[in-house]
Amino acid sequence: MNESIHIFEQEGEVLLLDINSGAVHVIDAMVRDILSVFTGENDGEVLEKLTGQYPEAELREALGELHALMEAGELFAPDINVPPTFREQGLVKSLCLMVAQDCNLRCKYCFGDGGDYGMGRAVMSEETGRKAVDFLIKSSGARRHLEMDFFGGEPLMNFGTVKSVTEYARQREKETGKKFKLTMTTNGMLLTDEKIKWLNDNDFALVLSLDGRKEVNDAMRPDVGGHGTYDRIVKNFKRCLASREGGDYDYRGVYTFLRGTYTKKNLDFTEDVLSMNDEGFSILSVEPVVSKNPEIGFTEADLPRIYEEYDRLTHAYMERHRAGKGFFFFHFNMDLSNGPCVAKRLSGCGAGHEYFAVAENGDLYPCHQFVGREGYRLGSLDEGVTNTELPAHFRACHVLNKEKCRSCWARFFCSGGCHANADLFHGDIYEPYEVGCAIQKKRLECAIYVQAMLALEKQERETAAEA
């Protein structure tokens, strides 16, 4: 088969992705068989091999359709090389502030060692937070849109700094013309009505951590005393969500996400997604744990079961959508027509060159998961970036420069996977974490299927309405 296409089956449909154009086609079984032979120029060979299997007239008709797609640039599109729009040096546009390297939960899969990242429990001072705002403005060049995430640990354990830094960022916006998008990732334990109102008034997008069903969440996300947290958290999240009803938060991109982690203990994670939806939340994500702990982390042996579960989730997702009760699932939210530009697909999350994490003491790291990892300190807010080789190393670590990614069908959708995971498993950001790649590819197939079906069903409804 031609290496510039990927064909897969989902829920009985056969889908074709043209890798270098991003075109998606739903094809019949005969076209799939043709494409196992067809290279774009060998019609005679196709007819010779398949005429016994299919009527010749049908084969010729299908070949005509394939040639039309080639002429439209939607089949066998030419290879993509690094475009001139992907500049050699990145500009920092996004910071993750570790405002509290301390936490009131003890999640069993925490990559931050219970919140302190192995650096001792501490919180960021207001002065350090303000310096981070200035650093981002200075480092972002002509870019107008900037992003800042308040992270931890648990950021609400240091609400004073959050408020002070936000106030300062809004003041600097007026002085510089920059626009800050602010996000907070919180476990919700300290979400009081007063804090919710303040977060709403300051246009905070919220990422609320919950692992789905009560028994799943409480087994993985206990408090410091080892007690379950579900009842307390869900009560707070519901109040938070209710406070935003009737506002135009989603319209303005100020989303309220519920985000969970699944582990080897809940491979039936579809139930967790549906549980959160049943509780009234409609912007959801659950993601695979990345851990070397054999009790919760995944190996290749777990992949068939994980694939099966994504099939179940896809089915449930479509069922609810068709019944008019659809929800938003982060990994299925793929824009097939107007997705990001190629330069963005190469830079991905931007860790290490467009996106930095700021530790509570002002040290800079490539991202929140690298905080405290030996060999990955970039510099500090006071010194600036002193390890200038690291940003260049991360900038060059894109799919077209990685051997395993260069020929992978998913290369323009995954951005080469997570650097922190590659480092965790291989000690080398150029060596992708294989289990993560496999899960990502399955999710992408499900997402392409979901978006293709929703698009086709919409077309059918519009055609029927016109008739």
Binding site: A23, H25, E65, T85, E147, S337, A343
Partner: peptide, 27 residues
Amino acid sequence: MKHIKTVNKPTMQKTLKTGGCGECQKN
């Protein structure tokens, strides 16, 4: 088309020349 249903009109190739502004949070 009888055998193939195309579901999108992607702009990825176009962005080889026009992308890279870094303002994403044009296409």
